[in-house]
Structures are given as C-alpha cells and as structure tokens.
Amino acid sequence: MADEVTFPVEAGHIMLFARAIGDENPIYKDAEYAKASEVGGIPAPPTFERVWAHWDPDYSLRPKPGEPWFGSAAEATARPQSADEEDDGGGSGRGLHAEQRYVYHRPVLAGETLTARMRPGKTWTKEGRRAGTMTFSEGIIELFDEAGEIVITATTVGVTTSRAVDQ
C-alpha cells in the first residue's frame, strides 16, 4: 500500500458496494430516506473501508496494463515477487485473509473525503494441521476525515500457508 491514500466516499459507490454484498437496505441507495434517518445521510456499510484499494496506486491485487499478473489468460501463471514486496500470496495464490476487525469512531457519510494510512502490526508463525506452516502478518489502517479526526480503525491479519489448505 502507498503510505497514504485519499479517496472520496461517493453515493453511487456505496450503492454498488451494498448491491455486491446483497444488502437491500434503502439507506444505501435512497438519499431522501437516508436524510430522514438517525445518521442523516447515506452511510458507508460496515465493511466499505476496504475500497481505498481502488485509489491505491500500489495495490497489488488489481491488474495493471503491462505488468505481470497472477491468474490465467491463455495459461495459468504465478507472478514473480520481489523479496521486499508485501506478501499477498501473489506468487502462489496462497495468501489468505485470516482476520479482520473494525473500530467505528463515527458513521462515515457519502460526500466525505477520507485519508487512509497504513502501518504494519505484529507478525508471527504457527504450525497448522490443514495448511502446514502459516505466517501471519497484521496491518493497521486508520481512516481520517477532512478535519484530521479518526473515523475508522481497521486491522487486517493476512496468512500465507506453505501449502493449499486441506478442505
């Protein structure tokens, strides 16, 4: 992730996001309805925070023209990863999302502009029965509003397994 990502919270984006999670709550698509609610506007759904990824020029899980991608076109391929790259499992497809938590300091409303800043947290390893050696790493993302006040704290724990997890 870039050191800092600034992004607009747009009403249309909230509508699309709510649709993708199958949430038909009118507060996410009907401005009049939202205005009359306690929050007084269109709020971001609880997990909307992640969309900063769209504005992150360095985001590694979005294909970019001319850059190698892990996935299939004519062939299925892995992507070579440099040693210092944040390990998203791109080489092997074995990076998984282990844990996610949010602290909400106040509701975020459509029309705001937020700034996300990420810092690394702890890292640890564990031997698992279903996945071999698991390497966990924590990332903490804080979202600030235009006044510089914190609005959301998001903690991500990623895990890279030494083999595909047994089903």
Binding site: F7, P8, E10, A11, G12, H13, H54, W55, P65
Partner: peptide
Amino acid sequence: FPIEAGHIMRFAAAIGDEN
C-alpha cells in the same frame, strides 16, 4: 445517472486506460 470521479477511475482501470 450521477457521474462520479471514483466511478470513472474504476471504469478506466477496468478497461486498462491509464490516461
């Protein structure tokens, strides 16, 4: 149809247009 800057950005990314 509201024309949002973020939506334009994502649409351009999806068609691989880096303008």
